[in-house]
């Protein structure tokens, strides 16, 4: 193992980590807002990848251009899911936690079934995108362009999110609702509207990630499952509900995954991520950046 190999894999790990952060951002946002873990988050990613694929296949729109469209489509989807399913799950009087887990999990199964039904279980990919398959070399280190652009999009998205939450009325309403939903209702903010918009925004973020992922990853009905667990770990590492914790969590997960792949067989690379999660929560039961 030479220094060059190590730097090479850490660099790829960092890029992947920034994408993991972007995938997890929406999950963290929704959790922070209303204490709900969306167990269909991976399926949101899967839908985003399919939307990207079909925009490419039918209208020849490159994934890079499609990204904002996919984000917009997912925004609508997320808000609808809140209004049709999650809103009712939150009204449960018994077993609230379990109801939320199983309502969103049931939704995930339905989405996977629908994807199999309409899109077939075949693996699809976008063969000729503008960036797909290209690499850039920085002093002997080769970086795939789609991942590099994805990392850039992730940083941009997190920056935009930061200003959005701090500077806009909706962002402030979001922050206020997460602090105290009851008090927010007293000053005339419609809690349901904020939640619906929060779900929309969370889904839009994963939509952005899906459009990027579609450039270099196979698209199939179960694709979400492999990323969902990583997203939960990312969010938990950062401290549930902290959107910027998810950013840091993503980077850690990417780097740990890349380092594990250096030492263990590639099929075991996720073991490193899971082990780090356990190590962190055993030492700090509320994640790295969560308040104790």
């Amino acid at each position: 193992m030479t220094t060059a190999t190590i730097i090479q894999s850490l660099a790829s790990g960092l890029l992947m980590g920034l994408l993991y952060g972007l995938i997890a951002a929406g999950l963290a946002l929704i959790f922070g807002l209303m204490d709900v873990v969306n167990f269909a988050h991976g399926e949101f990613l899967m839908i985003a990848m399919y939307v990207t694929f079909f925009l490419f296949a039918f209208f020849a729109i490159d994934p890079l251009l499609a990204a904002p469209l996919v984000a917009a489509a997912l925004f609508v989807f997320g808000a609808v899911v809140y209004l049709l399913v999650v809103r009712f799950a939150m009204r449960a009087k018994a077993n609230v936690g379990m109801v939320q887990i199983f309502a969103t999990f049931g939704l995930a199964i339905v989405m996977r079934g629908l994807a199999q039904f309409f899109f077939t279980p075949d693996y699809r990919s976008i063969p000729h995108s503008w960036l797909g398959g290209q690499t850039i070399s920085f002093g002997g280190i080769y970086l795939p362009v789609p991942q590099l652009v994805g990392a850039g999009v992730s940083i941009l998205a997190f920056t935009a999110l930061f200003f959005f939450i701090k500077k806009t009325d909706f962002g402030r309403a979001l922050e206020a609702t997460r602090e105290d939903a009851g008090a927010v209702a007293l000053v005339g903010i419609d809690k349901n509207r904020v939640f619906a918009l929060g779900w929309g925004l969370g889904a839009a973020l994963v939509g952005l990630a899906g459009a990027i992922m579609a450039m270099f990853f196979y698209i199939y009905p179960d694709v979400g499952a492999s990323f969902a667990l990583i997203a939960y770990v990312t969010v938990a590492l950062g401290g549930f509900g902290s959107v910027f914790g998810a950013f840091a969590g993503g980077i850690i997960v990417g780097l740990v995954e890349a380092s594990t792949a250096l030492i263990l067989p590639p099929s075991l690379k996720s073991v490193g991520i899971y082990a780090v999660y356990l190590l962190v929560v055993f030492i700090r039961p509320r994640g790295l950046f969560g308040s104790i």
């Binding site: 009087k93 309502a103 049931g106 339905v110």
Partner: peptide, 23 residues
């Protein structure tokens, strides 16, 4: 036929029971 209808039925059932009969 491997077309996912079983998943749709099964998932819908889970959602409906979780929402309608949380206990």
């Amino acid at each position: 036929s491997g077309r996912g209808v079983d998943l749709i039925v099964y998932g819908t059932l889970i959602v409906l029971i979780a929402l309608a009969r949380p206990e």
